[in-house]
Computed example of a mutant assay.
Amino acid sequence: MKKVTVFILTFILFIPIVNGKNINDLYGELNALESQKNLYSYLNSEDIKSLSNNGLDIQIIIDSLNDEINELDKEITSKEEFINSLKEEIDNVMVYNQVSQGENIYLEYIFAAETYSDMVYRYMIAEQISNYNNTMIEEMNKEIEELNKKKEKLNEKINKLGKERSKYRELEVILKSVSYLDGDSINSSIDDDITSIKKEIALYESIGCSRYMDISACLNIRDGGNFIFPLDKGCVSQDYLSNHKGIDLACNGEGTNVYSSAKGVVSSITYKATYGGNIVYIYHIIGGKQYTTIYGHLLEVKVNVGDVVDTDTVIGLVGGESTAYINGGYDKGTKGAHLHYVVVEGFHVNDFSSYTLNPRYFNTYPGILNGYFRRKKA
C-alpha cells in the first residue's frame, strides 16, 4: 500500500504547477461561505416570512412593469405610424407648393376671380390650404414631442424593471440558502458546505499538498481511467432509485474482496455507522471531472485515509450479514451480504444525496437478480 505522502516526497520535483484548483481556492470558497452564514445568522422565522412577502410584492411590481412596458410599446408603435402618415401628407403638400411655385399660385388663383364674391371665396380656399399645412406641421411636432416623452417613460420603466429583478434575485439567493426549524432557529445548508470544504482541505493538507499546488497534480490522480465493477463478479439485488441512491451488488458471501472502481485517493472512512456500517469514500478525477465513489456495508476496511488506490487495491470486504441489526449487528441498513455502491459527482464526504449518479451510466450491469457481471481491468 502506497501513501500519497511517500509518492509526493519522491516525485515532488517533477509535479507540474498548473493553473487548476488549489487549497488556496478552497480557503476562498470557505471564507465566502462563512461570510454568507454570518449574513444570514440574524434571520429568524419572522424575518424569512417577511422576506418571502417582500418577494411576492416585488414579483407583483415586476408583472405590473411588464404590462406597462408592453402597453407603452404598443402606444409608441401607434404614434410612430401616425407621425409617419402626417409626414407623408405634409410632404405631398410641400411637393405641390414647390411644383406650383409656392405662394404665387395662391395669388394667381385669387386674382383670377371674375367677381368680388368669387375672389373672397378663392381667398378663403387658399387660406384653408395654407392653414391646413401649418396645422399638420404643428400636429406632427406635438406628436413627436409626445412620442419622445413616451420613449423616456419606457426607458424609466425598463430601468426600474431591471432594478426590481435584481432585488428579486438577491432575495431568491437568501431564501434558498436558509430554512428554519423550531420557530426562530436557523438551519442553513451552508453549514453542510462549510463542513465538506473543511474536510476536503484537511485531507489535502494531511497528505502534503501545498497551498498553491494544483490539487489533481498533488494527488497524482489526474487520469483515473474509467470506472469498472468493484467486485470480481456478482449480481444486482437492488437498483438505483430516488429513495435508494446507489446500487446493491450481491450474490457473494461475506468476506469477498471489494476493489476501488478507479484510480483515486481514500478521502474518508466511516466505521460502524448505524446505516451503512463501515463505509469507504474514494476521490477520483475521471476525464477531467471530480467524482467520489462510496462503498457501504463493509465487513472490514483494508485502507486508510490518504492511501492512493487503483483497480487492483482491495479496499475492504463485503459485509452486511453478520453486521446486520436483525442478526445482532450494528447496521440497520442491511439484511444480508452485499455491497452498497454509490457514484457521486464532485468531492463529498457527508451530505451527497443530491449529487449521486446512477452507476449504470458508467458500467453495464445486468437486471435485478437477472444475470451476473464480471470484472474486467480498464
Rank of each mutant, 00 (worst) to 15 (best):
C218A: 09
V236S: 10
G253T: 15
Y204D: 01
M213Y: 02
K199Q: 12
C209Q: 05
K199C: 01
Y212E: 07
F227L: 11
M213E: 04
L219N: 07
L249G: 02
T256R: 13
I194S: 00
Y240L: 03
K198D: 00
S242F: 11
G255R: 15
G255V: 11
S242D: 14
G208K: 05
D214C: 01
C218G: 07
S210N: 07
S210D: 02
D214Q: 05
S242R: 15
A202K: 12
N243M: 12
S196A: 14
C251E: 03
L231F: 12
Y212D: 10
Q238A: 07
N257D: 10
Y259A: 08
D232C: 11
N252S: 12
S237T: 14
N257V: 03
I194H: 00
A202Q: 04
P230L: 09
D223M: 13
S237E: 06
I215C: 01
V258Q: 02
P230C: 11
C235T: 14
G234F: 07
Q238E: 07
S242G: 15
D239L: 08
I197Y: 01
L249M: 09
K233E: 13
A262S: 15
I221Q: 04
K263E: 00
I228S: 12
L219F: 08
S216L: 03
F227G: 11
S237P: 00
C209W: 05
F229L: 09
R222P: 00
C251A: 08
R222T: 00
D223N: 15
D214V: 02
G255Y: 13
N220T: 04
D239T: 08
T256M: 09
L241Q: 14
G246T: 08
K199A: 14
I207E: 02
V236L: 10
F229Y: 14
K245L: 06
S237I: 14
S242W: 10
Y259D: 06
D223V: 10
F229N: 06
I221N: 02
I207H: 05
P230W: 04
L241D: 07
V236W: 08
N226A: 12
S196I: 13
Q238D: 02
D239M: 05
G225S: 15
L249D: 01
L249Q: 03
Y259L: 08
P230Y: 06
S206A: 04
L249N: 01
H244G: 11
C209D: 01
G253K: 15
I228M: 14
M213D: 01
